[in-house]
Simulated scan of single mutants.
Amino acid sequence: MNQDLFNYIQNHKSEIFDRWLVLMNDVETERIKNIVSEQVYVNVSSDFVNLLLAKAFRDQENFAEELEEVVGRVVSLGWPLAYLTQGVRNLGHVVVEGYVNSEHVKADQTHSELFYRFDKWLSPIYNKIVEQYSNSWENTVMLQKVALQELSAPLIPVFDKITVMPLVGTIDTDRAKKIMENLLQGVVKHRSEVVLIDITGVPVVDTMVAHHIIQAAEAVRLVGAKCLLVGIRPEIAQTIVNLGINLNEIITKNSLKKGVEFALEMTERKIVDIESEE
C-alpha cells in the first residue's frame, strides 16, 4: 500500500466511515437494528472500522486482542458473520473509490490495480475475522450449553427431607445422565428422604424416557430415599399403558400438589388448615 493511500485514509476517516455505513444498509442491518439501538450499532461499527483503518498505519501488536474483543461484542449481540465479512469488503470499496476520485491518485494507477492491492492487504484480516468469529461463536454456544445443562435438571428442596426435580422439554440420553447425577448428588446434599420427579412439562414419555425415569428411581432408592413420579397427564398415562411400560415400583400422582401432600405423609407430616383448627 503506497504512502498517498495511507495519507488519504488518515485524512478522510470520518468520510470513509459515513460512506461505509451507507453501503452496510444492505447487510441485514434492519434485523440488527431491531436487536440494538441505533447508537449501539454506530458505536460498534465505528470501533470495527477504526480498528481496521488503524491497522493500515502500523502493525499493531495488540491488533489480534482488539479484534477478538470487537468480534466478541458482535457475537454477543447476535449479529451475523456477514456483517463483519461484508464490512471488510465494503471498506475496501469505499477506500479505493474515494481515493481514486481524490486528488491524490496518480495518473498511472488504475482503479482495478488499487483495489487489488488494497484487497490483498485486507485478505489476511478477512480470514482472521472469520476465524475469530467462529471461535467466539463456538465458545458462546459451549457456555450456553453448559448453562442449559445446569438448569435442565435442578433439584429443589421444598420441605425438610423433601425435594422436587421439575423436568421440562425433551429428555435425551445426555440429559438423562445429567438428571441421574443431579438426583444422586442432591439427595445426599439435602439429606432427602423423598424425591418428587415432576414430568408435567415433558411433552412425550416413550419407552426410552420411561426407562431413564425407572433407572433414576432405582438409583434414588439405593441411596436410601424414595421416589415419586408426579405430573402424569391423561395422555401420558395412556401412552405408558399402550407401550406396556411397568411403573409398579414407582409411586405415581397426577399432580405436584398431591405428590407433595403424599410426601409429607411419608415423612409423618401433613398440611393443616389453621382456620379449621381454631
Rank of each mutant, 00 (worst) to 15 (best):
H104G: 00
L143Y: 00
V146A: 01
I129K: 09
G78K: 06
Q109D: 12
S136G: 07
L81A: 07
L84D: 00
L122D: 01
T110K: 09
S102M: 09
P154C: 09
L114N: 03
A147W: 04
V105T: 10
Y126C: 04
V105R: 12
Y99S: 11
A147D: 08
W137H: 12
R89V: 15
K145I: 02
E150T: 02
E131V: 07
P80Q: 07
K120V: 00
S152R: 04
A153R: 03
N127G: 13
N135P: 05
T140P: 01
E103P: 00
V96A: 08
H93W: 14
P80C: 00
Q132F: 10
K145H: 08
H93N: 14
N90R: 15
W121Q: 03
E97L: 12
N127R: 12
L84M: 00
F115D: 07
H93V: 15
E131S: 09
E150V: 05
L91Y: 10
A153K: 06
V146Y: 01
A147N: 03
L143F: 00
K106R: 15
G78I: 09
E103V: 11
S112N: 15
H111S: 08
R89I: 13
A82Y: 01
P80Y: 03
Y126T: 12
Q109I: 02
H104Q: 05
Q132M: 09
L81E: 04
N127T: 14
A107I: 13
S112W: 13
P154N: 01
S102C: 06
T85P: 05
G92L: 11
A82V: 12
W121P: 02
N127E: 15
L77Y: 04
L114G: 11
Q109G: 06
P80G: 06
E103M: 11
G87E: 01
Y83V: 02
T110E: 03
F118R: 07
S112T: 11
P154G: 01
T140L: 15
V94F: 15
